[in-house]
């Protein structure tokens, strides 16, 4: 910072007081489109739903204030689906986040080796994530269909006499959904972001490492991995949030069944709001979720100081 001789500052209290100069507020100026958008589209809805969380409201009649009733109902067993759906959602995130991060990182690394036809290969890998959800849902239901589906057809061919019913079987539904989601995740947006991150690593560093006698594994561990940490961090945060928000896959493929085996938290929220029209209770559910995800993300941000390496600026 250049020391500028006493420019009149916002607060003119002399000496000790920290002086704010116009340039200290530049960040706000750059961020102003987002701040404006936040106030316009997000803040109002959020405050409105916070208010609704303390009411009973079913659209037809005006909201009635009920205090903490909605939260008590969730936490103290008035809603038998609350805890199971929360637990299920966490199990999902615990399995899916590491697997999809690892899978898409490996794919990105493979597609970054400069193989012949890389442009075509990358496009081919990306196509599944461009395919409309309706077409994919039809396809996967057909693969998993117990009697004449492709998977069980194959299993019977190789001698499995009683293959499971997959999506229609409560104990197999969850793993089946996981496989189906991983299939779409491995070559999709996460992979693309890793690929973009890999481009930022200067070739000179690899050459230097090679001259120092570093093998492929050592180069990966000591050059690629540290310099990729900001990208990994991004994908981790987004991945956790996305996994906890899982909705569409289950909604389309199983509708939460069989016997609530894939009844995720947001599905429960959706059901409460738009099938039972308990908008007050649904808002409470939304805020409980919001607080949980914020705590997780803050913990992640805090932990990130230990492992994310920024060249431009220290971590937040």
């Amino acid at each position: 910072m250049v020391a500028v001789a006493s420019t009149p500052s916002v607060r003119a209290t002399p000496a000790k007081r920290r002086r704010w100069r116009a340039r200290d507020f530049q960040g706000w100026l750059w961020a102003s489109p987002w701040i404006l958008g936040f106030v316009l589209w997000t803040l109002g809805p959020m405050l409105w739903s916070l208010y609704l969380a303390f009411t009973r409201y079913s659209i037809i009649r005006a909201p009635i204030w009920v205090g903490l009733d909605n939260f008590q109902r969730a936490f103290e067993g008035g809603d038998s689906l609350f805890w199971p759906s929360l637990g299920r959602t966490f199990t999902w995130a615990l399995v899916m986040v590491p697997l999809s991060l690892l899978g898409s990182l490996l794919t990105a690394l493979m597609l970054n080796q400069g193989l012949r036809g890389t442009a075509i290969l990358r496009t081919l890998f990306f196509i599944p994530s461009l395919t409309p959800a309706v077409a994919l849902a039809v396809l996967w239901r057909w693969i998993y269909q117990p009697d004449f589906g492709a998977l069980n057809y194959l299993l019977r061919e190789i001698g499995v006499t009683a293959p499971p019913a997959w999506l229609a079987d409560a104990s197999y539904a969850m793993p089946s959904l996981m496989v189906m989601t991983l299939w779409g995740a491995v070559g999709g947006g996460t992979m693309l972001i890793f690929l973009a991150g890999l481009q930022g690593i200067s070739q000179e560093l690899y050459e230097a490492a090679e001259i120092d006698g570093a093998g492929r594994l050592a180069r990966f561990r000591n050059v690629t991995l540290p310099l990729l940490t900001p990208t990994i961090f991004f994908n981790l945060i987004i991945g956790v949030i996305a996994a906890l928000r899982t909705f569409t896959t289950a909604f389309v493929a199983t509708g939460g069944g069989p016997n609530y085996a894939t009844w995720f938290y947001i599905l429960h929220l959706y059901q409460t709001a738009f099938q039972n029209f308990e908008l007050g209770y649904a808002s409470a559910l939304a805020w409980i979720f919001f607080v949980i995800v914020i705590c997780l993300t803050l913990a992640n941000l805090r932990l990130s100081r230990r492992w994310v390496y920024y060249e431009g600026e220290e971590a937040i």
Binding site: R23, D24, F25, L269, Y270, L301
Partner: peptide, 23 residues
């Protein structure tokens, strides 16, 4: 750029990722 409360503001940006669309 610098801005008073920048980290808080950035936290707010991230938090909008967590609001379920339904809300």
């Amino acid at each position: 750029f610098r801005a008073p409360g920048k980290n808080l503001l950035f936290g707010l940006v991230l938090s909008t990722l967590m609001v379920p669309q339904i809300v």
